[in-house]
Simulated scan of single mutants.
Amino acid sequence: MNLPAPIWRRCIAAVYDGLLLVGLWMVALVIDTVVRDLFALDRNWAALRAYLFLVGLCFFSWSWTHGGQTLGMRTWRLRVQRSNGLPLRWLDAALRYALMLLCWGIVLTPALLQLPQLAGRANAATIAAGALLAVAAGLLSTALDTRRRAPQDRLSRTELVVLPAESRR
């Protein structure tokens, strides 16, 4: 049986995968810009958000359903699996991805509220404090969970485990 992934290892793998996702989104934006320019189309922000969501969904879902690892998870010997130990199905992966984005959105909210166009909002400090409390509650619940499941793991019935080190010969 594999051990649950510690929080620090999860976070480092998430940073790796976050950088990779930003790179994929940048390529997707270049493709969007080229297509819009070729066909003289106006920017549709809702369609662009949906497109970027689908790019990330395809990346994470394919990785998680084909071996249970993204590049960052492979580097840190982590694998995502269903709570019963079986590999993720596409629906499991899609749910986990959507919940993961929601969780990271909450984590990044205090930093985003420092942007000039958002910092002046009357309720920015209250929203930031609420987000920080939610992050602290999520981290505490992950630390107290015997299988170290984050909120997105519990809600999607998945878990992140550490794979054994390969023996070097």
Rank of each mutant, 00 (worst) to 15 (best):
L3S: 14
L3E: 14
A5D: 02
R9K: 13
R9E: 00
R9W: 00
R10M: 01
C11E: 00
A13V: 08
A13R: 06
A14C: 03
V15Q: 02
D17C: 10
D17A: 11
G18P: 00
G18L: 03
L19I: 08
L20Q: 02
L21M: 15
V22F: 09
L24S: 07
L24Y: 13
M26I: 10
V27K: 01
A28D: 05
L29N: 12
T33S: 14
T33D: 09
V34K: 01
V35E: 06
V35D: 01
D37R: 15
D37M: 13
L38C: 07
L38A: 13
L41H: 05
D42Q: 14
R49Q: 11
L54M: 15
L54N: 08
V55A: 09
V55H: 05
V55I: 15
L57Q: 05
L57A: 15
L57P: 01
C58S: 10
C58Q: 03
F59A: 11
W64Q: 11
W64I: 09
H66T: 13
G68T: 09
G68N: 10
Q69H: 04
G72M: 09
R74P: 00
T75F: 06
T75C: 11
W76I: 02
R77E: 06
L78C: 08
L78Q: 12
R79N: 06
R79V: 14
R79M: 13
V80N: 06
V80R: 04
Q81G: 06
Q81N: 08
Q81M: 14
S83R: 13
N84S: 10
L86A: 14
L86G: 07
R89D: 07
W90C: 07
L91W: 08
L91C: 07
L91M: 12
A93W: 01
A94Q: 03
R96G: 05
Y97C: 09
L99P: 04
L99R: 00
L99Q: 02
M100D: 02
L101P: 00
L101E: 02
L101S: 04
L102P: 00
L102Y: 04
G105K: 03
G105R: 03
I106T: 14
L108T: 02
L108A: 15
T109G: 03
T109Q: 09
T109E: 11
P110F: 10
A111F: 13
L113P: 00
L113H: 00
Q114V: 06
L115K: 06
L115M: 15
P116F: 12
Q117P: 01
Q117E: 12
A119G: 03
G120I: 05
R121Y: 09
A124M: 09
A128K: 04
A129I: 07
A131W: 04
L132I: 09
L132T: 01
L132E: 06
L132Y: 05
L133V: 13
G138M: 15
G138P: 06
L139W: 05
L140V: 12
L140R: 11
T142L: 15
L144Q: 05
T146Y: 05
R147T: 05
R147G: 03
R147P: 03
R148V: 06
A150M: 12
P151R: 10
P151L: 15
Q152Y: 15
Q152K: 04
R154M: 12
R154I: 14
L155V: 07
S156D: 00
T158F: 07
E159T: 11
L160Y: 00
V161W: 05
V162T: 13
V162N: 07
L163N: 00
P164F: 08
E166S: 12
E166P: 03
S167N: 07
R168Q: 11
R169H: 10
